[in-house]
Amino acid sequence: MTLSVSSVREGHLVELVDADGVAVGSATVADAHTAPGQLHRAFSVFLRDADGRVLLQQRAPVKTRFPLRWANTCCGHPLPGEPVTVGAARRLVEEIGIADIPLTEVGVYAYYAEDPATGRVEYEYDHVLVGDLPSHVRASPDPDEVADLRWIDVPALLTDLENDPRSYAPWLHGVTQRLSDGH
């Protein structure tokens, strides 16, 4: 039997943190996302084009949390003790097929969300990162991670999030606010 990428990733370790983002231990991805959840470090990356639009991904149908919802360009978890930007750069390659984009942190968004479809939870201390995508670089998303991609400007995204929140991952509004506040 072949394990899916999502199944393998569920066994990876994440860094547990307190409410201030101080590391307090580790757990597997699966354990950290099982109700009631454990607060852990995460990141949400936005890539921007020259016009200031952000690249969104529609999460693949095999995702264990919020499948087929629209989200920021890429998200994930650094390994325990790993710098957030290093983990984020790794996930950009794995999810979107894009490497070597400098990332800047623009804020942190802590949140809790339950996925009614899967029963899994997100309880994350989420570092929001942004990077500028050169026009000659093209995404090559992994279909096990990403169902679709689209560009949108931030004001239009904020309007969509207000009008149709169920089409989007529950963290997207908060991380988009950090992006618009930070840049």
Rank of each mutant, 00 (worst) to 15 (best):
S4I: 04
V5L: 12
S6M: 07
S6T: 10
H12I: 00
L13M: 02
V14K: 09
D18N: 15
D20W: 03
G21I: 05
V22I: 10
A23Q: 02
S26E: 14
A27V: 00
V29M: 11
V29W: 10
D31A: 15
H33I: 04
T34M: 03
P36E: 11
H40A: 12
A42L: 03
F46C: 04
F46L: 01
R48H: 08
R48A: 12
A50C: 01
A50P: 02
A50S: 11
L55P: 02
L56H: 04
R59L: 14
A60L: 00
P61N: 04
K63I: 02
F66M: 14
L68D: 15
A71F: 02
H77I: 01
P78M: 08
V84I: 14
V84D: 09
V86R: 15
G87P: 11
R90F: 13
R90L: 11
R91S: 12
I96Y: 03
I101A: 11
P102W: 14
V106G: 12
G107Q: 05
G107V: 03
G107T: 05
A113Y: 10
E114D: 07
P116D: 05
E124P: 09
L129M: 07
V130G: 07
D132T: 09
L133M: 03
S135H: 13
R138P: 04
A139K: 03
S140L: 14
P141Q: 03
P143N: 11
D148R: 14
I152R: 01
D153K: 00
D153H: 00
A156L: 00
A156H: 02
L158D: 01
D160H: 07
D160C: 05
D164C: 06
P165Y: 11
Y168C: 09
A169D: 15
P170R: 15
W171Q: 14
W171I: 11
W171G: 12
G174C: 09
T176K: 01
R178E: 07
R178W: 00
R178S: 04
